[in-house]
Structures are given as structure tokens and as C-alpha cells.
Design a protein around this nucleic acid. Structure first.
Length: 425
DNA sequence: TCTGGGGTCCTAGGACCC
DNA sequence: TCTGGGGTCCTAGGACCC
């Protein structure tokens, strides 16, 4: 049967989430900032029209924001995660096969659906999502994921399409591909864009017509797959099952520079407990702990230092206190006094399923049943009452290094009102 | 004062083995 | 005349995604 994909993309997702609970934001220029209130990571159409770029540092635009009455919010991931789940559940009603691709995008398989009424169906999906969740979405349809993505860009670009565009067997395919900048093709980032333009490849159509061997030579097999997908030959399938992470990272920039080892250890302990939580939630254990720390690269006049250190654990672990001990040990090896640090973090790798840990002679009863029970209770309580309800002494209580979130909206959906159901094992 | 955080995949090249 | 060569594993680095 013929492949057929729909890409559903939430419009200006974080801004749309804020708008659902604060209708005053409708029709206004609104931006949402990254952690630490650093960069712009979501913009309403009105904000885009003011020329505010994705990733723009917020402090450079203070004047512009004030002059134009731009409403500025800290990112509220508890809210966005919850809204995302509602949108995905809604989309799941319209197809038996769905891939949740990111917090604000999903691929739907439309294989076997009546191809003459797909646009109509997509309009129904779109209006239902809006009605049930308040979030506006755009939908692109195509025979490959790359073309569905491209179609969704077209759907956003032309108002009269009402947020839906089907590129499948389109009579004006070439003209449409020619109207799309090569850098807007899924898989073509800024580096490749520069390179391609230098070689006269400016549009998606140019790329579609590029030679296979040349593409493979300069852009690896991944680039070649992208080109084939542009020609309608599917190279990327629907990934319905979440793939267990191969590495789990947790790190944050500090709200202010941190110099003491004591405070770095507190911050690192906090990140290790987040990472360990994620590890346990996918029922895994990690055998390698990488720790890194960095000064602020945007302050060239301050002395710069960055380093990392890796511990190979005697056996894969998921017990937070032990992981904190190992992380602290590595931090001690790379910490140098006299620097103003901006960031530290942990990266867990060599991840294996928890119940398939290779035991050795010295670890007969591993993992210890008591530790496992403690972790289960801690995870349950934190899932129910919010991260940080139970935490470790090593994380500290003052947390003066915590990131800034001065412009946070209330936790509309996740505070008190909802108690997640936790499945027993 | 002030510039995010988390992932994926691929390739080249070195080490090592036979 | 003319410094073996092929396979495998690992790591660092570079590209991409949202």
C-alpha cells in the first residue's frame, strides 16, 4: 500500500499554550523565553512581524519589547508538557498509527485512508484539536515525511489554505518545491544551506534534482535520504514506539556565576537526580557518568575554563544517591578554584535495561531491594506532588544558583488540580 | 546584569588483531 | 627495487532536529 503521512504541527506552540489560559494575549505580540530567560524560543505571528528572530537574546531586545508592548513570558514546561499530551491524545483519535515527534509535532499515518477526502479529514482534525485543546495546528500531507513537513510549511504560509495542505501527486509539485528555500527542507541546517547555495542549489526543487553521488559524497547517506524523500521515495518510516534513550543529559545554566565547589556540588546533585529519574522512568540503568563544567563563554575578558570527566561504574546503576556520589567524585577531579562558572551538568551513557544487568562475583544481590523500594517511593511522590517534593540533602536548600524565571505564568493545569495516575509495576 | 537544553546519526581516523 | 592488508572497535567531531 502507498505510504501517506500527515505532519501535524502546533502553531507557535508555547505562545499558544499561554494564550489558552490568558485570552488577553490574542492578537498581541507575545514571546516565550528559554531557561534563564535567555533567548526567544517561541513567537506569536505578531512578534514575528516585528522582526524578532528565533533564538534572539532577550536582553538585546528589551527596548523593542517595551516600545511595541511585546508580552514576555518565561518558559513553563510543566504547562506545555501537559498541553502537548492533550493535543497528542486528540490526534490519536484520528489514526491508529501516530508518532509523537516532538513536544509540538506528530506524524500520522494515513495509509489506506480515502485519498480523495484527505484535505477534508485534515480540516476535521484541525478543528477538533482547536475545540478540545484550544491549540491551533497546521497539517501537511505527503507521500514521505519530508514532503509532509514541507507541505505543513506551505499550509502555514498561505492564509487561504486554512492550515491544511496536501502535496500528494500535486499537479504543481515542481512549482511548489521551487518556492521553498533549500534551508527550509527538513534535514538541511544552516551549514548545508550555505554549502548548497554556493553550489547553485537554492530551492527544494534544485535539491530534488541534485545528483545522488555528489549528494552522498558531500552530505553523507543522510543527505541522500533527504533528497530521495523529496522525490517521493520514503526513507524514513513511522516510529510509533518511543525508543529508549541511549544517553540522558541534565544540565542548566546558573542564574548567577558560581565559584564554590560546594554550590557546584549542590547544582550537580540536582541534575543527577533529574537524570536518574528519567533513567528509572524508562526502566534502565547507566554504566557511565560524564560530568562537565564551564565558565561563561560570552565573557571573553573573564578567565575561561571548561572540562569534563568520565567515570566507568563497576556496574550499571539507577540509585540516585550512588550516582550523586560518583558524579561528585568526577567533579572534584576537574574543579579549579578561581573561576566564575556558568554551567555544570551530567550525561549518563552505556544505558542498559535494568533487569538485564550483568552481575559479577562481588554483586550477588544487586540491585538492593531496599534501594529500589526507596527510589520507587520517591518517584511516586514526586510524580504526584511535583518534582522536588522529595529531594536529597546534597541538592542543598537555598539554591541561589537556580535559573531565573521571572516572568512565569501560573501552573494552570498541573498545580493541585491534577493527580497523575501512576501505574504499578 | 543578560546569550537554552536535550537529543540523533554518520564519518574519519587511530588502535589493535591476525 | 619500492615499507602488507583487511576487519573491527572505539572516539572525536560535525552535521542535524526541536
Amino acid at each position: 500500500m502507498k505510504n501517506l503521512f500527515a505532519l501535524v504541527d502546533c502553531n507557535n506552540f508555547y505562545v499558544s499554550c499561554e494564550r489558552v489560559f490568558n485570552p488577553r494575549l490574542e492578537g498581541r505580540a507575545v514571546v516565550v523565553l528559554s531557561n534563564n530567560d535567555g533567548c526567544v524560543i517561541a513567537r506569536s505571528n505578531e512578534a514575528k512581524a516585528l522582526g524578532i528572530k528565533m533564538g534572539a537574546p532577550a536582553f538585546q531586545h528589551k527596548d523593542l519589547f517595551r516600545k511595541n508592548g511585546v508580552l514576555v513570558y518565561s518558559s513553563n514546561y510543566a504547562l506545555y508538557g501537559d498541553m502537548s499530551q492533550r493535543v497528542m491524545e486528540t490526534l490519536g483519535r484520528f489514526t491508529p498509527r501516530i508518532e509523537i515527534y516532538s513536544i509540538d509535532e506528530a506524524f500520522l499515518s494515513l495509509e489506506g485512508f480515502d485519498s480523495t477526502s484527505l484535505t477534508e479529514y485534515a480540516h476535521l482534525i484541525r478543528s477538533t484539536a482547536k475545540k478540545w485543546t484550544g491549540i491551533p495546528v497546521s497539517i501537511g500531507i505527503g507521500p514521505t515525511k519530508t514532503l509532509a513537513k514541507l507541505a505543513s510549511k506551505v499550509a502555514k504560509k498561505y492564509r487561504k489554505l486554512n492550515g491544511v495542505f496536501d502535496l500528494t501527486d500535486h499537479p504543481a509539485m515542481e512549482k511548489i518545491l521551487d518556492s521553498v528555500d533549500v534551508g527550509d527542507v527538513w534535514g538541511i541546517g544552516p551549514r548545508y544551506r550555505t554549502f548548497l547555495v554556493r553550489h547553485g542549489i537554492r530551492s527544494a526543487l534544485d535539491l530534488n534534482r541534485a545528483g545522488d553521488i555528489w549528494v552522498k559524497k558531500h552530505m553523507t547517506v543522510m543527505g541522500l535520504r533527504t533528497v530521495k524523500e523529496l522525490r517521493g521515495i520514503p526513507c524514513f518510516g513511522l516510529e510509533e514506539l518511543p525508543v529508549p534513550r541511549k544517553g540522558i543529559m541534565s544540565s542548566r545554566s546558573f542564574g548567577r556565576p558560581v565559584e564554590s565547589l560546594e554550590e557546584l556540588k549542590q547544582a550537580l546533585a540536582t541534575y543527577v537526580s533529574r537524570a536518574a529519574e528519567k533513567l528509572r522512568s524508562q526502566r534502565s540503568a547507566a554504566a557511565i557518568v560524564h560530568v562537565f563544567l564551564l565558565t561563561n563563554r560570552f565573557k571573553p575578558r573573564e578567565p575561561q575554563y571548561g572540562n569534563s570527566s568520565t567515570a566507568i561504574l563497576p556496574i550499571p546503576m539507577d540509585y540516585t544517591p550512588n550516582l550523586i556520589r560518583w558524579a561528585h567524585r568526577q567533579l572534584g577531579k576537574i574543579y579549579k578554584p578561581g573561576y566564575r562558572y556558568k554551567k555544570t551538568g551530567v550525561f549518563l551513557t552505556e544505558i542498559v535495561p535494568r533487569d538485564r544487568i550483568q552481575l559479577n562475583l562481588f554483586t550477588q544481590n544487586y540491585p538492593h531491594e531496599k534501594n529500589r523500594k526507596i527510589m520507587r517511593v520517591v518517584d511516586l511522590i514526586n510524580a504526584r506532588w511535583g518534582t522536588d517534593t522529595v529531594r536529597y540533602g546534597a541538592e542543598g536548600t537555598q539554591k541561589e544558583w537556580k535559573m531565573r524565571r521571572n516572568l512565569l505564568s501560573p501552573r494552570y493545569t498541573t498545580q493541585w488540580s491534577e493527580i497523575p495516575v501512576v501505574k504499578s509495576e
